[in-house]
């Protein structure tokens, strides 16, 4: 393979964003409308910061930028509305296929469980589930790769960089202290 697959406009690289010049993708108009509404809400919110009080007011730059957003979003929406829908693409197959939806659900689940359950159990569940679904390999492979890489990440972030992810139900700190005592001879 010598050429990158830029012809399939899925936006794989940032430099070659997805979308087409002459046709619109499923959901593109909806997204543009959402952006327009969002920009308008932000503009209203920016106006609420300080109104037209002074050039140096905290709301001046936010108002200017959100105004630009509204105008740009409006142009994009109008342009998109005039394009014809691309044939052969559907929202369910090309934009949000099942596997993407599953992963979105996994990520939401991760976000919800992270605090109550703690970093280690949540990540173990996430990695195992994700690798199992994508890889369709045996449990031995899945668990080995998932837990192995989790331990590696944990060692780097928790021990070397002392990033204290939420401990949740695992008494991490006591565990580490135990090993410190074991190695150092004293606490």
């Amino acid at each position: 393979m010598t050429t990158p697959q830029t012809e399939h406009h899925d936006g794989t690289s940032d430099a070659t964003p997805g979308g087409y010049d002459t046709e619109r993708r499923p959901g593109e108009l909806g997204f543009a409308l959402l952006m327009l509404v969002g920009s308008a809400v932000l503009l209203w919110s920016a106006y609420g910061i300080s109104g037209f009080q002074a050039l140096s007011a905290p709301g001046s730059v936010p108002m200017a930028t959100t105004a630009v957003m509204v105008i740009a979003a409006l142009i994009v929406t109008l342009k998109t509305a005039r394009l014809t829908l691309v044939s052969g693409e559907t929202l369910a197959r090309d934009i949000l296929p099942g596997v993407v939806l599953i992963f979105l659900a996994l990520l939401v689940g991760y976000a919800l469980l992270l605090k109550p359950l703690g970093f280690l159990p949540t990540s173990a569940l996430f990695l195992t589930g994700a690798i199992k679904i994508l890889g369709r390999r045996g449990w031995g492979f899945t668990l080995g790769v998932a837990l192995g890489s989790l331990v590696l990440i944990w060692l780097v972030f928790r021990i070397v960089f002392s990033v204290l992810m939420p401990a949740g139900i695992v008494p991490e700190a006591e565990f580490i202290q135990f090993f410190r005592t074991l190695i150092g001879g004293q606490g």
Binding site: S123, F126, S149, I153, V163, M165
Partner: peptide
């Protein structure tokens, strides 16, 4: 590396990284 392993790992690293 197989994408089936790479993709979940990128996601987990992103999460830890954003937290850190």
């Amino acid at each position: 590396m197989p994408r089936a392993v790479l993709i979940p790992l990128i996601m987990l690293l992103s999460i830890v990284g954003a937290y850190a």
